[in-house]
């Protein structure tokens, strides 16, 4: 099961080797449970971060594996490039839609590329 955002996976990572240095970008910038805000900007031509989540606050549920190329760039057919992390982010529907009529527990889960996430204090 994926840990819920309010309960980060309590298991310590199994890492017998400690001397390995990760390349830049290899370590995820965010961890499950981290509060994040979706960026607000307007790429021209192609994007995969829908308008309705921009500027909203959420919580990282999990880090998606494996790493992948930024799909905004991939849309132009490079078929290559440095990979980054996607994160599955939880956002309450009450935060997305003012006056949301369902249960306050109802929420969205959506994959967002690392460059779109900002740390948020809440």
């Amino acid at each position: 099961m994926h840990p819920s955002p309010s309960e980060p996976d309590p298991r310590p990572p199994f890492r017998p080797v400690t001397s390995v240095v990760l390349a830049l970008g290899e370590a995820p910038a965010f961890r499950p449970g981290d509060p994040v805000r979706i960026g607000v900007r307007f790429p021209v031509g192609h994007y995969r971060v829908p308008r309705y989540i921009r500027g909203c606050d959420g919580v990282v549920e999990s880090v998606i594996t494996p790493m992948a190329v930024n799909n905004e760039i991939e849309g132009f057919g490079h078929n290559a490039g440095s990979k980054g992390h996607y994160y599955r982010v939880a956002i309450p529907l009450t935060a997305l839609w003012p006056g949301y009529a369902g249960s306050p527990a109802d929420n969205l889960r959506i994959e967002v590329f690392e460059t779109w996430l900002e740390r948020s204090s809440t």
Binding site: V49, P50, A68, Y86, R88, S103, D106, R109, E111, V112
Partner: peptide
């Protein structure tokens, strides 16, 4: 039921 959480997953990437 209202006390059951609804979780909507919007596919945007490779998942």
């Amino acid at each position: 039921p209202a006390d059951v959480e609804i979780r909507v997953s919007d596919s945007t990437a490779q998942v």
